[in-house]
Design a protein around this nucleic acid. Structure first.
Lengths: 166, 166
DNA sequence: CTCAATGCAAAGTATTTGCACGCTC
DNA sequence: GAGCGTGCAAATACTTTGCATTGAG
């Protein structure tokens, strides 16, 4: 915790920026909340503790956190950017349930190794990668089996499009 | 080619929709262009052949193409949705060069197999996945080596943030 | 006392929607 | 002829920017 704050202040100093109460509070709330927070989410949480903080400042501070290596952007297809902890939270990938929105994090060394091999074969120098698997989580599958509505045989005409992979 | 058009018209009929000149043209231009087209790109190409086509119609028709299984959405972090051919273009992943924007498509059965195994371990039912590797392509690496400017030892203070993975 | 930070409002993007008119089926 | 399709303009959602004021170093 304190470690992250130190990193942030170092980053601020090195970049010739200034330490402010807003930035400290935003970082603090971010660190306390182990979730995939959108700017809006964080804004609301911060606002609850200190109403005179603007949305803009939250956006700007989140960028600072990314620069400082404390946060990482992720997008799950609901149109908004989310942020997760990056410090001592090594790279991982996500499964995203398109029914309930739940996300499951996972890591596979094998997967990483194969990616490295592919990339090397193309003389491509990777800086970052993102694997997202969209689908239905175990809980939602069960829930659907129980309320097995729509036993009707007639197919629906208009299909829902595939989930956005934005 | 004609095969895709037939699929489209079947989809249109089955859904109780109507065949129009605009839709036919948009599909035609899309099929002729083997690229990752944004709605804007496609709009411009279509407009060049038939000026009285609206942006809205292109957006709506692209959705239809996705529904019909002819197109697939992809996002590379420049904030806009792109579309690639989906019919007889089986699943593949992308490397995206953050210098020149070039994309390299690849496919690895091994990669897919490992993903399937991971997913199965979580009783997660995948519907779709997206792996994007961001980095610098071979050409851009070479280009940078040649114009080796910035031999200066002093580090720049403000870091560019990591590429968006939107 | 200087220059960065803040927060409001306004501007940007990318995409979607309301609606009157036009065109398929 | 009924109802979907079209294209414009307006609306939306998320994020960024301009600017005058406030505040940190």
């Amino acid at each position: 915790m304190t470690e992250e704050k130190e990193i942030f202040h170092q980053h601020i100093q090195r970049a010739g920026l200034k330490r402010t109460a807003q930035r400290d509070l935003i970082l603090d709330v971010f660190l306390r909340t182990e979730k995939h927070l959108s700017s809006e989410d964080l804004y609301r949480l911060v606002k609850a503790e200190e109403p005179n903080v603007g949305h803009t400042t939250v956006y700007r501070t989140l960028k600072l956190l990314v620069e400082a290596g404390l946060a990482r952007e992720v997008r799950f297809g609901d149109g908004r950017t989310r942020y997760e902890h990056n410090y001592k939270h090594p790279h991982h990938d996500h499964m995203i349930c398109t029914e309930c929105g739940r996300t499951i994090e996972f890591y596979s060394a094998e997967l990483e190794a194969i990616q490295d091999a592919i990339v090397a074969g193309h003389r491509f120098k990777p800086t970052q990668h993102s694997l997202r698997i969209f689908g239905v989580c175990a809980q939602c599958q069960r829930r659907k089996d129980v309320n097995s509505e729509e036993t009707s045989a007639e197919p629906r005409v208009r299909f829902a499009s595939a989930p956005n992979t934005q």
